[in-house]
């Protein structure tokens, strides 16, 4: 069930939680950190589809709900360690999810009674793959939170492999505008990676 980028962008306009104003996001993060339980509900509403989809893809439908629950419980229990200035809450949740998924994956790998379990799998290699998958899904989400023009330019530069000059010509804007839009867009995406790195198991 894949949804293409254009479709995702269209859906994001229907309040999928990615269109929040920056101020709202900041105050939500502060309320969450302070232990406001209603903030947890909003964090869950905004990000549970991302976390659940990752767990489901990595662990299968059967174990995804449990893993998702563990992620949000761990986030709530360690909420005081979340530093809003170190990046996005989505990044931090996915950083935690990465550890939970790797743990669950290892536990399943040790289950030798299950003939379907990959007994010979190399958990070291798998954990790199699982982390990369978490990062890509996080970046996919983050991309949708960029302002439309920056998002389009990043998309053209990285998906369509256009040069900045080509993008500028198509969009009819100066090359400098393209460069600064893309640079600012990438900086915003990096905030998500910072929070991802900041998460602890």
């Amino acid at each position: 069930m894949s949804v293409d980028l254009a479709e995702r962008v269209r859906m994001s306009e229907h309040g999928a939680g990615v269109g929040d104003a920056a101020r709202d996001v900041r105050s939500l993060a502060a309320e969450f950190r302070r232990g406001d339980e209603r903030a947890l509900e909003r964090v869950y509403r905004d990000h549970s589809a991302l976390v659940y989809s990752y767990c489901r893809r990595a662990l299968g439908e059967h174990r995804a709900a449990d893993a998702t629950q563990e992620v949000f419980l761990a986030a709530w229990r360690s909420r005081e360690r979340y530093r809003p200035d170190a990046g996005s809450i989505a990044g931090w949740l996915m950083g935690i999810a990465r550890f939970k998924v790797i743990d669950a994956y290892r536990a399943a790998g040790r289950d030798l009674s299950d003939p379907a379990s990959p007994a010979t799998s190399d958990v070291g290699t798998d954990s790199v793959d699982l982390e990369q998958m978490a990062l890509r899904m996080l970046v996919a989400d983050a991309l949708l939170t960029l302002p439309e023009r920056a998002r389009e330019m990043v998309r053209k530069a990285y998906f369509d492999d256009q040069t900045h000059a080509q993008i500028a010509e198509h969009a009819g804007v100066p090359l400098g505008t393209v460069k600064s839009d893309i640079r600012r867009g990438l900086q915003r995406l990096e905030r998500h990676l910072e929070a991802f790195d900041d998460a602890r198991p």
């Binding site: 069930m1 293409d4 890509r136 899904m137 996919a140």
Partner: peptide
Amino acid sequence: GLNDDDFARTDA
């Protein structure tokens, strides 16, 4: 490296 699966979401 982004692919369609990275964008696919299923509600919890």
